[in-house]
Design a protein around this nucleic acid. Structure first.
Lengths: 134, 134
DNA sequence: TATCTGTTATATTATTAATATAACAGATAG
DNA sequence: CTATCTGTTATATTAATAATATAACAGATA
């Protein structure tokens, strides 16, 4: 699981890491049961502070994507068991709304917008089918 | 054009205002040529500082949604003239990516995700057809 | 025992968000 | 002309967040 950070981005690096881990799970690069490096190891690899990584792990635990076992360390949860919660749908809608609004303002047709959404969704699936590890 | 702020939200209020104005333009509540209140007036209405509103107007000018004429004040641009720029498509894709990834992780099917996107898009259009001012 | 793990505590620095006060120049109404 | 309203700029301060630094604790492990 390779992570790349953009230190110039306005997106906080702990959010960048969180998103890339979630994208890794969505694409199948990270499978249930897979372990992640220790907070100190990942911090060292990325050249950042231990607490920034710890913040990500704590956040992803709260969101249900990761679990920590004293024995096996930080482990990816079985996301197949997740329910589509109402609170997530509400959050997703409020996140999508300004993006859709701007797309409309900038002249993106409904068809082209939906095609873009479809492409992004299927890119994650493509990886899953292209081999569990490559 | 009514604006509502959530002072408890983690979304900065200048971003909340920006998004609501863009959503107003997308839905047709704000039409090209419509004027917005002065920075001092809107700040007073919302109970916030003049500079916070000025930050929004400056941002929306840079993004091309508003123009300022010494004479007529702050005016909504003719967004029909907008081109779908590559830079916007790239920004939209990078904004959508983590949302789609989380949707997949949480078990939202492709069909249900696209349906949600479609609904949001059409909600803006519904308002346009439902009367220019109501 | 020594080391690695997640976790917690405390403190500091940097950046951003929001506010406060003030001023300037162009436009405008009386 | 005067007074007022406009966007705009400057400067400063406060509050909150992001990121870092150093340290320690307890469980697991070799």
């Amino acid at each position: 699981m390779l992570l790349s950070l953009d230190m110039q981005s306005e997106t906080p690096i702990y959010v960048q890491i969180r998103n890339q881990i979630i994208e890794g799970i969505a694409s199948g690069k990270l499978l249930p049961g897979d372990t992640l490096p220790s907070v100190r190891q990942m911090a060292s690899d990325l050249g950042i502070n231990l607490h920034t990584v710890n913040k990500v792990y704590t956040l992803l635990k709260q969101e249900g994507f990761l679990a920590v076992h004293r024995k096996s360390g930080v482990v990816v949860n079985d996301y197949k068991e997740f329910k589509v919660s109402d609170s997530f749908l509400e959050k997703m809608e409020s996140d999508l709304k300004p993006i859709v609004a701007e797309a409309i303002c900038r002249g993106l047709t409904k068809e082209k917008f939906l095609e873009k959404c479809l492409n992004i969704y299927e890119e994650f699936q493509d990886y899953q089918q292209g081999g569990k590890k490559g």
